[in-house]
Amino acid sequence: NQASVVANQLIPIQTALTLVMMRSEVVTPVGIPAEDIPRLVSMQVNRAVPLGTTLMPDMVKGYA
């Protein structure tokens, strides 16, 4: 099973992502693949992302 990127904390809207905000976890449905974590650093979320939420491509500006 492929690991996805999951929020390690509440990430407020417009926040630039850092490594400490994300973790990898095998979840359903599958979100952004964990191997993309380095690419996500400094990208902004376009909505508030609660703790434990799987990051989906449409939540990160410039990802999809």
Rank of each mutant, 00 (worst) to 15 (best):
Q44L: 13
Q14S: 14
R23S: 07
A16S: 14
I37E: 01
M22Y: 02
T54Q: 03
L51I: 10
P29F: 04
G62N: 14
P50H: 09
T53M: 11
L40P: 00
L51C: 12
E35D: 09
R47Y: 11
T53S: 12
V60S: 00
A7D: 01
V6S: 01
E25H: 07
G62D: 14
L55Q: 01
A3H: 14
P12H: 08
V41A: 05
L19P: 09
Q9N: 07
A34I: 07
V27P: 01
L19K: 09
P33L: 08
G52Y: 04
V30H: 12
Q44N: 08
S24Q: 14
P57E: 07
T54M: 04
T53N: 10
V5F: 03
M21W: 03
T18A: 09
S42W: 07
D36S: 10
R23T: 07
A64M: 13
Q2R: 06
A34F: 06
V20G: 13
D58Q: 12
L17P: 04
P12W: 04
N1W: 10
T18V: 06
L55S: 01
V41S: 02
M43F: 07
T15F: 05
P33K: 09
D36T: 08
Y63N: 03
R47T: 14
E25I: 05
P38Y: 10
V6M: 03
T15W: 04
Q2Y: 12
M43C: 07
P29N: 05
S4Y: 03
T54S: 04
E25V: 08
D36H: 14
L19G: 06
A34G: 09
V20N: 15
P38F: 10
A3K: 09
I37P: 02
Q14N: 12
K61Q: 15
A34V: 08
G31F: 03
R47F: 08
Q2A: 11
N1C: 07
T15C: 08
I37A: 08
E25C: 07
A3I: 06
R23V: 08
L51N: 15
M43L: 11
A48K: 11
R47D: 08
L17F: 01
A48Q: 13
G52R: 00
N46D: 10
L51G: 13
M22G: 01
V27H: 02
S42M: 15
A48C: 11
T15K: 08
M43D: 02
I37G: 03
S42Y: 08
P33G: 05
P38H: 15
I11A: 00
T28L: 09
T53I: 08
T18K: 08
P33A: 08
T53L: 11
Q44A: 08
T15M: 09
S42F: 09
S42L: 09
